[in-house]
Computed example of a mutant assay.
Amino acid sequence: MILRAKSKAEPLPEPTPGGPKHVAIIMDGNGRWATQRGRPRLFGHHAGAKRVREVVEACPEVGVEYLTIFAFSTENWKRTQVEVAGLMSLFRRYISKETRSLSEFGVRVRFIGDRVRLDDKLIKLMNDLEEATSHNTRVHLTIALNYGGRDEVARATKRLAQDVAQGHLDPDEIDEETLPKYLDTYVLPDPDLVIRTSGEARISNFLLWQSAYAEYEFIDTLWPDFSREEFAGLCASYGGRDRRFGAVKT
């Protein structure tokens, strides 16, 4: 996902008033995209990584301040050993290669998910990238790596229970505002819009708590074919929606 300091692409339309500030994306369809071209699945993952670049670059143009992408789920370990190893190599390669350009573009990177199962080299690269971009504010990019919504809630509940057991938290004071403080995303606003590519209409254990009031877009485009123009169009469509959060406008 090589980021350029200045994009040569045609400028996108002005942001729609009321557009999403936080967009989360389930980047699906890399494997099918590669298969359609007679190539191995990892070829599609490499193509998908490059597509992230365009979406990140488009965020400031369409008024998106926070972008969260689903890179690798807790369920993805079930894939073949070859594909998993290839994905981990891809993550290490792009983190190593893009730290400088991400920082120059003004991107702050955070990772969410359980790092315990990841290898030490990848964890160090993740930590270094977070540190190197910690001062940036132009785009807040969150990468969900070895992430699962249920796993996140389970880990958060465990930490909450430990605080109760140690006397740091009164059980009677626990409400729906308490648990989010223990989630991986505690410093982020909830997503306004969740996009899933490739034609699948499910959320696949992604940001289960945080997306309670998000708008969803399930589109047929495979991730490597997802364009900045399509991204801008979905953001503009969101701006025209009537969001009531359970209330009735009078």
Rank of each mutant, 00 (worst) to 15 (best):
G44K: 01
T197C: 00
S211H: 08
S101F: 04
T16A: 14
S204I: 04
L12F: 11
V107E: 02
E75H: 12
V194S: 06
P171E: 01
I174S: 11
H45F: 03
R117W: 11
H135G: 14
K181D: 12
K6V: 14
S101M: 05
R39Y: 02
L42K: 00
G38S: 02
Y147D: 08
R228G: 08
Q210V: 14
R115D: 05
G31T: 00
Q162K: 10
F226S: 01
I123Q: 12
N127Y: 09
D170E: 06
T221C: 09
L188T: 12
S89H: 13
G29C: 00
E83T: 03
A58Q: 03
Y216D: 08
T99S: 06
D192T: 07
T80S: 15
E177I: 03
K50C: 02
R138E: 14
G148I: 06
A47E: 01
T157A: 15
P13N: 11
A201N: 15
R115G: 01
N30G: 03
P180D: 06
V62S: 05
I25H: 04
I95K: 02
F245D: 10
R115C: 04
V84K: 07
A58P: 04
R110W: 11
L160V: 11
F245A: 12
K124M: 09
E57M: 14
P13C: 09
Y238C: 11
D170V: 04
R150F: 12
V64A: 04
S237P: 00
D175A: 10
E200L: 10
N30A: 02
G239M: 09
V55S: 01
R138N: 15
A247H: 10
L125P: 04
Q166D: 15
R108Y: 05
G29S: 01
L179M: 13
G148T: 12
A58H: 04
P224G: 01
A58E: 04
L234F: 05
R41S: 00
A5K: 13
G113C: 07
L234K: 03
A85Q: 15
P171W: 00
L102R: 04
A232M: 12
R243V: 11
N127F: 07
W209R: 07
N136L: 08
I25E: 02
F206W: 12
H22K: 08
Y182T: 09
A165P: 08
N146M: 13
L3Q: 06
G167I: 07
G106C: 06
A232I: 07
L222S: 00
L141A: 07
D220V: 10
I219C: 13
H135E: 13
E98T: 02
G48Y: 01
I95W: 03
R244L: 12
V62R: 02
I195N: 02
K97M: 05
A24S: 15
R244C: 11
R79T: 06
E57N: 09
A212Q: 08
S89A: 15
